[in-house]
Design a protein around this nucleic acid. Structure first.
Length: 586
RNA sequence: GGUCCCGUAGCUCAGUCGGAUAGAGCACAAGAUUCCUAAUCUUGGGGUCGCAGGUUCGAAUCCUGCCGGGAUCACCA
């Protein structure tokens, strides 16, 4: 149960009770009423602003309404006391039993505690990574990949039907460049001395294994053919090999997509999806032939006016109408984007989330415009931008140059600092704030590094439970036994703090999912870990608070129930973030 | 120039749908370990929430303008 949702319901009930007695008028807007944990603990367990929100429409003073509602709320058995404070806050103090039940609930729900049906099965497509298959992933791709993955997990936990999707551009001129690069490497592998690789090709070493394997098979034949003949062969061989490379890189971070969608599949033939999509837009009167105005600001030299097939993106909030055809008759990349959205829409998604890097922030409006135009408002394109990551090593910026070939790959990073650290670090920041990533700090196993702090809390709990099973036997420590423990023996403030923190997990999941912000979960886990570490150390100073007391089985079981529940929540949260909940630290 | 994002403690950052005395970590200072993992904990100082208006019972949060930092702009993908 989400405690806060429960009380929102009770407050609504109280309001309608006050309406039937005439203390409050009918037709009140209750949507702005919130229930939340008060900042000050002494204020109680739950606070609501209901009286202040209703004061104006009811034409009564907030305190008067608060007193009325407080009296109604106080009638429940599990409510200890209700106070009115400040400008009209209603502070509710709950009976202990209420919190103890949350612990029991965690122990029976286990990993599913905190999941909810916010999404009600709504189908969401989360598209992330979507890097062109021209080479391995580099460090700049990490953040979006991790963010998208965690967001997908989070939404799934919140009851959405999530599909993880990767859109790869296997149609454009970059793929021609890839094919030519492979051809160049192929001739090199066959023994030709070619000198330095020309500009415009991909100079990385990673194409060599592919070229060498091609050389062993039918390389000589291939090299002897004309470009028209080998280009399509090497394009598809290259895309296939690069996608495998990329999937391997993603697997290092535990990222696996459900669907890999080919851009090329939208182009094929006279009856292509792109053409059909443009026809649909045409029927809606959203296509015209026209000339775009020159870009404002700095005028580029090679700009010239030309007539193009344009989509009326401005009707849907974009800054400018967008071209669908190049002057040579090819479709633009944007045209494929439109068809791709339609494809997703036809597959029945209600929300299409695009996780993009900051360098694509200019795409937001046009993607939203596509969403409105294609779906007629039935589905939504939602763009989440990840800001750039700056790399440091011990405070010194790490320089990268693609030209010199010394750019850092995702594989480099993961192999150096580990998947857990990279993932947590990338998620321990709001996605739309820039992020400094320091290799030294991230490798340090210190309090500077939150992932270890959280994992350590989990490992400590596992350690206590291992220890306890020596004295009490493993069978006694199963969740169903712990659930029956005398939890009302838990009376210390630090214990109560921990259980109240755990009880907010469902609320955190809900708000993080609603806002598409997995970082909230990362911060929450840090707070849970902190509450636990605090309790642990209190037991060091005050022996009667230690988790295991072999003389007192009752209190021991109660405490083990509390920390087992804590471990469930940490593990569950870490799993959503894609971080391992280690059982011991080494 | 247009658009988008950011500006909160010395540093790095949280801050929920507008809510009560704005919070963490680092750094700094002082302490805690015969005992379940010290990768931990406790205590302390530290703030013009970029600036100026506006909206209202109430603004770090919403609106407008300005200042500063970043990203982006046109047949590329």
């Amino acid at each position: 149960m989400n405690v806060f949702v429960e009380f929102e319901r009770r407050i609504r009930d109280a309001v309608s009770a006050a309406q039937t007695t005439g203390d409050l008028p009918e037709n009140l807007d209750l949507s702005k009423i919130s229930t939340e944990p008060p900042r000050e603990e002494s204020h109680g367990d739950i606070a609501t602003n209901a009286a202040m929100i209703l004061a104006k429409p009811a034409k009564k003073s907030p305190r008067e309404i608060a007193e009325k509602l407080a009296a109604l709320l106080e009638k429940s058995k599990d409510v200890l006391e209700v106070n009115v404070a400040g400008p009209g806050f209603i502070n509710i103090k709950l009976a202990d039993q209420f919190w103890l039940n949350v612990i029991r609930e965690v122990l029976s729900a286990g990993r599913s505690f905190g999941s909810n049906s916010l999404g009600q099965g709504e189908k969401i497509n989360v598209e992330y990574v979507s890097v062109n298959p021209t080479g391995p992933l580099h460090v700049g791709h990490c953040r979006g990949a991790i963010f998208g993955d965690a967001l997908a997990n989070l939404l799934e936990f919140a009851g959405y039907g999530v599909v993880r999707e990767y859109y790869f551009n296997d149609a454009g001129s970059q793929i021609d460049a890839l094919a030519r690069s492979i051809h160049w490497r192929l001739r090199e592998a066959l023994g030709e001395n070619l000198g330095e690789m020309p500009d415009g090709l991909y100079p990385g070493e990673y194409l060599k294994p592919l070229a060498e394997s091609l050389a062993r098979d039918n390389g000589a034949d291939l090299a002897a053919k004309t470009e028209n003949e080998w280009l399509p062969v090497l394009r598809s061989a290259g895309v296939g090999a690069m996608m495998e490379l990329i999937k391997d890189d993603l697997a290092l971070l535990g990222i696996h997509h459900d669907v890999f969608f080919s851009e090329l599949s939208l182009h094929g033939g006279k009856d292509s999806e792109i053409k059909r999509t443009i026809d649909v837009l045409n029927q809606k009167g959203l296509i015209y032939e026209g000339v775009l105005p020159p870009p404002k600001g700095q005028l580029s030299e090679d700009w010239e006016a030309r007539e193009q097939t344009l989509f009326k993106a401005t009707e849907f909030g974009d800054d400018i109408d967008r071209p669908l055809m190049k002057s040579n008759g090819d479709y633009t990349y944007f045209a494929a984007d439109v068809a791709y959205f339609k494809n997703k829409f036809d597959r029945g998604f209600d929300q299409m989330i695009y996780v993009l890097g900051a360098d694509h922030s200019g795409y937001v409006k046009r993607l939203e415009a596509i969403g409105k135009a294609i779906s007629g408002g039935k589905a939504q394109a939602v763009v989440r931008i990840c800001q750039l990551v700056k790399l440091f090593r011990g405070g010194v910026p790490v320089k990268m140059s693609k030209r010199a070939g010394n750019f850092i790959t995702m594989r480099d990073v993961v192999e150096e600092v580990g998947s857990d650290s990279v993932r947590f670090m990338m998620l321990y920041r709001k996605n739309d704030a820039p992020l400094d990533f320091d290799f030294v700090k991230v490798t340090e196993q210190s309090r500077d590094n939150p992932v270890f702090y959280v994992q350590y809390a989990h490992a400590r709990i596992c350690s206590v439970l291992r220890k306890a099973s020596e004295s009490f036997g493993e069978a006694q420590l199963a969740d169903e036994f712990l659930r029956a423990a005398a939890l009302d023996l838990l009376s210390d403030e630090a214990e109560r703090l921990l259980m109240r923190k755990i009880a907010t997990f469902p609320r955190v999941i809900e708000s993080a999912a609603r806002a598409h912000e997995p970082h909230r979960l990362a911060f929450f886990l840090y707070e849970v870990a902190s509450a636990f570490h605090s309790l642990w150390n209190k037991g060091k100073e005050l022996p009667h608070l230690r988790f295991i007391d072999e003389e007192k089985g009752d209190i021991t079981m109660a405490r083990l129930a509390l920390i087992r529940a804590t471990a469930h929540v940490i593990a569950s949260g870490l799993t959503i973030l894609g971080v391992e909940a280690s059982e011991e630290m080494r």
